[in-house]
């Protein structure tokens, strides 16, 4: 494994997760855009040290501001990296968009459904198993600030492998797949 990139939208707890994973000390704050430059640290995956990079928050891979540009550039430079994609479990839509973009580019991905506690509090139930089936990559619920789910997340990093988006489409339901594909053809 070459490198692990920690990616996700702003304010979903990337820095908190980074601190948990590396034991490092990066500033975590409860507002978007705290990390404007990337941070590097080392973490232990299956007994081996791997470099972990805390990438600034990005909404998508079409950059809109300086911090997002940094994020996209980092991803493009690290062709062999594995990506831990951090999602806000209370609103996964936007995060999923980024996950799909990263999958399309062929990176192996692990999804951390962070802020699981917030989601639970606001009565959002996510079927993590089903999500894992659909995406074809490991999906782990976490609460980074409290340290919940971190161990499981690390243990599943090695399972990350590139998946075909076509497969994801197929697994969301066969009959609608056709409509998507035809639109793809236009």
């Amino acid at each position: 494994m070459d490198k692990i990139l920690l990616m996700g939208q702003a304010n979903v707890g990337k820095s908190a997760l980074f601190n948990r994973l590396t034991g490092a000390r990066v500033i975590e704050s409860n507002y978007p855009g705290t990390t404007v430059d990337y941070e590097k640290g080392r973490m232990l995956v299956d007994g081996e040290y791997v470099e972990l990079v805390d990438v600034p928050g990005t909404f998508s891979l079409e950059p809109k501001d300086g911090a997002e540009e940094v994020a996209v550039r980092m991803l493009e430079e690290e062709k062999r990296a594995t990506v831990i994609c951090v999602l806000d479990a209370s609103k996964i839509e936007r995060g999923l968009y980024l996950v799909l973009e990263i999958l399309e580019r062929g990176y192996p991905v692990v999804v951390a459904l962070n802020m699981w506690d917030v989601a639970r509090d606001s009565k959002v139930k996510i079927d993590a198993k089903r999500l894992e089936q659909i995406l074809g990559v490991p999906v782990v619920p976490t609460v980074a600030v409290q340290g919940e789910g971190i161990k499981q997340l690390v243990s599943r990093i090695s399972e990350a492998a590139p998946v075909k988006v076509a497969g994801v489409i197929k697994r969301t339901g066969g009959e609608k797949w056709n409509s998507l594909l035809t639109r793809d053809g236009t």
Binding site: I92, E93, K125, D127, L131, V165, T172, G173
Partner: peptide, 12 residues
């Protein structure tokens, strides 16, 4: 696609 995934996995 995001829509369809969330429809299957998220229950509000």
């Amino acid at each position: 696609l995001v829509d369809r995934i969330t429809k299957e996995t998220v229950e509000v």
